[in-house]
Structures are given as C-alpha cells and as structure tokens.
C-alpha cells in the first residue's frame, strides 16, 4: 500500500500579553537598557520574573543593570538554524549580568569557538530598530581586550 502524505503548515498568529513585570523589562530593552527585578530576599533576577522561583513571592522593584556580564556556560553552534538569532556560527551562552544573581540565555557573536570560554566578559549589542522583544538585544559580544 502506497501511503499518502502531504505538506502541512500549522500557524498561530497569537499576541501575548506581557504582564507588568515582563512588560517593564521589554520596555527597558526597547529603550536600550537592561533591568532586573529584586526579590523579597534581596536577590536580583535577570531576566526578571513575576514571582521568585525560590519562594513563590511576588518580586519587587526593578533594578537597573549594566549591559555587561560574565559567561557561565556556553555552546558552539557551527551551523545555525533558520530560527536562531544569528545566521553565522555563534555561541549560545548563559550570561550573568553584573549585579544579577541569575543568568540569562542569549547568543554571543564571537567569530570562532576558540574565542569562547566560561568566565569571559561580554557586553550587549543592541539592535538599531527595537520593538520591545528579547531580540532587541541582537546578541552579546566579547569585551575588547578579553583574550581567551
């Protein structure tokens, strides 16, 4: 039996509401700023969450943060997929922004894998046209003078 098959596309064109905490963070990104959030126990979550995963308590006031941080772990993508943030080889990294207690996921445009190492310093590269999205951060780049 010759079984039939056919191409099929599933598409959902949803808009999601952000809520106040994520909305504030995305608004700051649109302004070209990073902003974490402080928990009731004094930790700074970056990216910010509405509730502290450690306690379940609502998080508090926003905490302005610099666009710089440290790579806590990374992975090298030699062949990017269409949905990836960069179309040339890049690193995924968890990045702990200075002043934050948690790390965020983003891409690092480092050119080559041997330019990457855990503990290296990186800084944000902003997109020129920003809309209020995690992609307003085009990626992070190694801080000049950081030799592996």
């Amino acid at each position: 039996m010759d079984v039939l098959s056919a191409p099929y596309v599933l598409e959902y064109t949803y808009q999601r509401s952000t809520g106040p905490v994520i909305g504030r963070f995305l608004t700051a990104l649109r302004d070209g700023r990073l902003e974490g959030v402080r928990t009731t126990t004094g930790r700074v979550l970056m990216p910010p969450l509405e509730y502290d995963p450690a306690t379940g308590e609502a998080t508090g006031e926003p905490v302005p943060l610099p666009p710089d941080g440290v790579v806590t772990t990374w992975a090298w993508v030699a062949t990017p997929r269409p949905g990836h943030p960069l179309d040339r080889p890049f690193a995924w990294a968890l990045i702990r922004i200075d002043g934050a207690d948690t790390a965020m996921l983003h891409a690092v445009d480092a050119g080559a894998a041997d330019a990457m190492r855990t503990g290296m310093r990186v800084t944000a590269r902003w997109r020129a046209e920003r809309t209020g999205s995690i992609l307003d951060l085009a990626c992070f780049v190694p801080v000049a003078g950081e030799a592996p």
Binding site: L10, T13, Y14, Q15, R16, S17, G23, G132
Partner: peptide, 11 residues
C-alpha cells in the same frame, strides 16, 4: 510594552 507577537509557524 504590554503585548508581544507570539507567532508559531511549524511545517
């Protein structure tokens, strides 16, 4: 920002 596009397209 209060809304973000959340488009899903799967083939």
């Amino acid at each position: 920002v209060t809304m973000v596009p959340s488009h899903v397209r799967l083939t």
